[in-house]
Design a protein around this nucleic acid. Structure first.
Length: 245
RNA sequence: CCUUGUGGUUU
C-alpha cells in the first residue's frame, strides 16, 4: 500500500488526478487496503480543482470503508477550502473534527488564519491568533506571518510593525518568510523606501535577503518608475550572492 | 531520527 500511496501522490502532484483515481479504484483487486494516506492527496487535488462533489463522495467512501479520517486529511480539506475563499465552510469542518477524534492543531488554525486574512477579515484573524493559546495551540512564526500578511494587505502598517515587534519579543522570532512578506507588501503598495528599512532589519536578525526579497524590491522600483535603480540592483545581484531568475 | 499525505513570502 505504501508503494501505491507514493504512486498516487506523484500522480496528483503532476495533475493527473483521474489517473490517481483509477489506481485508487484498482487497489481492492490488488489486495491492498487503502488508508488515509491513499485518500488525502486525491482529496487535495479534487478540492484544488473545485471538484467538491467528487471530494465529498470520496469522503463518504472512506467512511464506508471504515477508513478513519485523521488530522492530516482534515487539515488538507480545510486548507483547500480556505485557499478557495470558503473560510466559513472551513470553520464548519473544524467544528466536526472532534466527532472523529481529531483535535485542531496549529496547521488547522494557520489555514483558517490564512483564509480569514485573504478574505479581508483580518480583525477576525487577529482575534483567532489571540485565542490560540486557550485552544491549546502555541502560535508559531507561520501563524504570526499569516496574520501579518493580512495586516499588510489592509495597509495597516503600524499594526503590522507591532506584530513584528511582538514576534521578536516572544519566542517565535520572525524568519526570512516573515520579512519577505512585509517587504513584498510594502513594495506592492509603492513604499519601497520603507521596504528597504525592513531589508536592513532582516540583516540585523541574521537573515540574508534572497531572490524573493530582491524580486520584490526590483518590482517595486519599476512600479515607481525607478528603472535605473532597478537595473542597478539587478546587475548587482551576483555580488550579493543571488542569481537572477 | 530513519518508505507515503497537511499551514505562511515575489512573479
Amino acid at each position: 500500500i505504501v508503494t501505491y500511496n507514493v504512486l498516487i501522490n506523484a500522480m496528483c502532484n503532476e495533475g493527473d488526478v483521474d489517473e490517481a483515481l483509477s489506481v485508487l479504484r484498482s487497489l481492492p483487486s490488488r489486495g491492498c487496503k487503502t488508508d488515509a494516506v491513499t485518500y488525502t492527496p486525491v482529496l487535495k487535488s479534487l478540492c484544488g480543482s473545485e471538484r467538491w462533489k467528487e471530494a465529498e463522495e470520496l469522503l463518504a467512501e472512506m467512511a464506508s470503508n471504515k477508513c478513519a479520517l485523521d488530522e492530516v486529511t482534515f487539515n488538507t480539506i480545510i486548507t483547500s477550502l480556505c485557499q478557495k475563499g470558503l473560510v466559513d465552510r472551513a470553520i464548519k469542518v473544524v467544528d466536526h473534527m472532534s466527532e472523529h477524534g481529531c483535535i485542531p492543531d496549529i496547521v488547522t488554525y494557520s489555514s483558517i488564519l490564512d483564509g480569514l486574512s485573504n478574505k479581508g477579515r483580518v480583525d477576525d484573524a487577529v482575534e483567532l491568533l489571540r485565542r490560540l493559546q486557550s485552544y491549546g495551540c502555541k502560535p508559531d512564526s507561520i501563524a504570526y506571518t499569516t496574520v501579518l500578511k493580512g495586516l499588510c494587505s489592509a495597509e495597516r502598517w503600524e499594526h503590522a510593525e507591532e506584530l513584528l515587534a511582538e514576534m521578536v519579543r516572544s519566542d517565535c522570532p520572525p524568519d526570512e518568510v516573515t520579512f519577505n512578506t512585509m517587504i513584498a507588501s510594502l513594495c506592492q503598495k509603492g513604499l519601497v523606501n520603507r521596504a528597504i528599512k525592513v531589508v536592513e532589519q532582516m540583516l540585523e536578525h541574521g537573515y540574508i535577503p534572497d531572490i524573493i526579497t530582491y524580486n520584490c524590491v526590483i518590482d517595486g522600483l519599476c512600479n515607481e518608475m525607478c528603472i535605473d535603480d532597478a537595473m542597478n540592483l539587478l546587475s548587482n545581484l551576483p555580488s550579493y550572492g543571488c542569481k537572477p531568475d
